[in-house]
Each structure stands twice: as C-alpha cells, then as structure tokens.
C-alpha cells in the first residue's frame, strides 16, 4: 500500500464520516464545521489527483467563503441551539431507505458499466489541473460561459438585494 493509497483511504473515510456527521449533528454550527471537514478532505483528494487549482479554489470558495456565509447566517439567526424540530421517525426511515436504495442502484449501475471497470484515475501526475493550463482553456474555449456566468452573478446579486433588503 503506497502512501497515496493510504491517503486515499484516509481521506475517503474522513469525507464519509464527516458527511454523516453533518447529517446527524443536532447543532447547525456543528454541521457547518463537519461540512468544512468534508470540503477539506475533498480538497485532499483533489491534491491527490493533482488538481491543485481546484483544491485551492475549493478551500477558498467553499470552505472559506460559502461556509463562512452559512455560519454567519446561522449565527445571525441564533440557530446554534439544538432545538430543531425533528421529522418523525417514519419519514426519517423512509429517507434513509431511499438514500440507501439510491446508493445501491447507483453502485450496481456503475459496477455493471463494464467499459470503465479497467480504468484508473491517474494520481499525482499530469498537469491539466495546473492553474496555467486551466486558465488558458478558461479564457479561450470557455470564455463564453465564463462571461455568461457573470450574468448569473449579477442576477444573484440583484436577487439577494431584492430579497434580503428590508423595505
């Protein structure tokens, strides 16, 4: 077992564990924190896969910006108490069952996809994930969506203003 593999398993386990912890934490703040752990482990994966740019962006955007925003809102609403009303257990059970079924179906679907069974994800090599390469593509092939996503931001901005501003 190489270091990469050990790291892989560790990060995977961490990601899954923290993801589950996001769900079962009673306190929303804990959930946020666990989610940040998930993001960190995913970033770890990115680094394993040599996608440094994304790893950094993930940390900055998600763990940094988005989650802080979440935390901020939670704090703002004073939701850190763990008195969230619970769904009744039947619904919960149904939810878990549905999730598990979905997982089963997806996994079995992927397993029956024969053409990728031999494929490997290349670890620790390749330079497509470097900021230089990605930047080049982003501003050549992907310049149109890049520009267009600005519209998305504008609308989000306008929207947030419209919605959140007190009248």
């Amino acid at each position: 077992m190489t270091a990469t593999e050990i790291l892989f398993w560790f990060l995977s386990a961490l990601a899954l564990f923290s993801a589950i912890m996001v769900l079962i934490s009673k306190n929303p703040v804990h959930s946020v924190l666990w989610l940040i752990v998930v993001f960190f482990s995913i970033s770890g994966h990115y680094i394993l896969l040599n996608a440094q740019f994304l790893a950094i962006v993930n940390l900055i955007v998600y763990a940094g910006a988005i989650m802080v925003l979440f935390l901020f809102v939670i704090m703002l609403m004073n939701l850190n108490s763990n008195n969230e009303p619970q769904r009744n257990s039947l619904i919960k059970l149904a939810g878990v069952v549905a999730g598990c079924l979905l997982l089963t179906v997806m996994v079995s679907a992927v397993r029956s996809a024969g053409e990728i069974s031999k494929s490997q994800a290349v670890m620790n090599e390749g330079d497509i994930g470097l900021i230089q390469n990605l930047g080049k593509i982003l501003f050549t092939d992907y310049v149109v969506p890049f520009e267009i996503s600005s519209v998305l931001f504008l609308s989000a901005m306008v929207g947030a203003v419209v919605i959140a501003k007190k009248e």
Partner: peptide
C-alpha cells in the same frame, strides 16, 4: 418539501428499475 423529494428519489429509483 421532504415528501416531495422523497417521491422524486423513489421515482428515480423506479425509473432505474
């Protein structure tokens, strides 16, 4: 919302089947 999404998930599974 929960029920709606539950239905959606189940429907997805059914479609798969």
């Amino acid at each position: 919302v929960g029920t709606y999404i539950l239905f959606m998930v189940f429907s997805m599974i059914v479609l798969w089947l």
